[in-house]
């Protein structure tokens, strides 16, 4: 009788799924391609998480510890699933380290890939050192110093450009990445905490700090930290003769073109489908939706389902997702997987 669930990916969603399966008394096999557990918040060196404000290493650390200390979880790091044979209830997965895993169901918590700003060359990333991404600023905040990479000076002005790699048909990204607005307003506050004399400007088309993020992040950064919100989609980032950056665009409220000097320009990069999704789709036999994320089954009665029975998907593997909701979905998928195990037990009885 099979009592094992295979969990692929050890980020927030995968760690939650493995912990959920283990807590119910079943066995979880957790497979992670990186050398470390924790997923993007750890691998990309995030600072404080939204909305808890807790350091990523502490919050993820607790999730990792819970899984590592569980006797019901087997962990394979630096490992990929290379083959999945069988069907719902009796899968056999082959791992890249040679192990073979018998499992009743699979939870894909394979996450996302940050948009690579190189694909928007007009915004200066890769051309000018002082054009960075939100991920790099997260790392600066985690290191406790905000500085221009070109010469280490503390920036007098920072421009955060929203929707980089999101909501842009030109580059085939027709989705909203959901969390960048909130993350950017949070970063604006963190920058101001590290350097109170720095002015932070957020260039936006819309501000989508949904739910309780509205006053806790958007309002707070505006009212308490004096972040300036400018309604303009930047057309181009160039450099002025004095070495500062120039952001060019149209201020749609003043109805005038702008060419404004800045010291640091930050791309609020969106969430792309995991770059490995074609491989994942092939190995696990699941479909991808039109943007390249893993395709969802009917949600109402087949929660977390994919196009293949017995295989569930959670978190940013399905669409841009917050860390908190990824964790909830991981826990939900654990319930689906454990319910499958119980059904098998009843069937064989």
């Amino acid at each position: 009788m099979q009592k094992t669930v295979l969990v692929v990916g050890a980020g927030p969603a995968g760690l939650a799924a493995a912990a959920g399966v283990a807590a119910s008394g079943a066995q979880a096999v957790l497979v992670e391609k990186a050398a470390k557990l924790g997923g993007t918040p750890i691998l990309s060196g995030y600072a404080k998480l939204v909305p808890s404000g807790e350091w990523a290493r502490d919050a993820m650390g607790r999730m990792i510890k819970r899984v590592e200390e569980s006797k019901n979880v087997t962990i394979h790091k630096e490992t990929k699933v290379t083959k999945l044979a069988g069907e719902a209830g009796k899968f056999t997965a082959t791992l890249s380290n040679g192990t073979s895993v018998e499992c009743a169901s699979v939870i894909l918590a394979t996450g996302f890939t940050h948009f690579d700003s190189i694909n928007k060359p007009e915004w200066g990333f890769g051309t000018f050192e002082d054009v960075v991404t939100t991920t790099q600023v997260e790392q600066m905040v985690a290191a406790g110093k905000i500085a221009c990479p070109s010469d280490g000076r503390v920036p007098e002005r920072v421009a955060i450009l929203l929707c980089v790699g999101s909501r842009d048909r030109q580059i085939g990204r027709e989705w909203c990445s959901k969390i960048c607005c909130t993350v950017s307003t949070n970063l604006a506050m963190e920058i101001k905490e590290l350097s109170p004399t720095t002015d932070v400007f957020i260039y936006y088309m819309d501000i989508r700090t949904f739910g309780l993020y509205e006053d806790r992040f958007y309002w707070k950064s505006q009212e308490e930290f004096k972040t300036k919100f400018v309604k303009a989609r930047i057309a181009e980032v160039t450099r002025s003769p004095d070495g500062r950056l120039l952001v060019k665009g149209e201020d749609t409220l003043v109805k005038r073109p702008i060419v404004i000097p800045m010291d640091l320009v930050v791309h609020a990069v969106g969430m792309d489908p995991n770059e490995d999704n074609p491989e994942i789709a092939r190995v696990f036999g699941v479909g991808l939706e039109k943007h390249g994320f893993i395709d969802r089954a009917e949600h109402y009665t087949n929660t977390c389902g994919t196009t293949r029975r017995g295989i569930y998907a959670v978190g940013a593997a399905l669409a841009p997702e917050t860390i908190d909701d990824s964790i909830s979905q991981g826990t939900a998928a654990a319930l689906r997987a454990v319910a499958d195990l119980n059904a098998l037990v009843q069937k064989s009885a």
Binding site: F201, E223, I258, V259, P261
Partner: peptide, 29 residues
Amino acid sequence: PRYLTDYDTDFARQIRTFSGGENVHRCWQ
């Protein structure tokens, strides 16, 4: 040229020091 070339980043603070202008930075248009 008709483009705007800079902001006076201290102006909003100055207006906030006048009676009535205290909350000007809260505006979201």
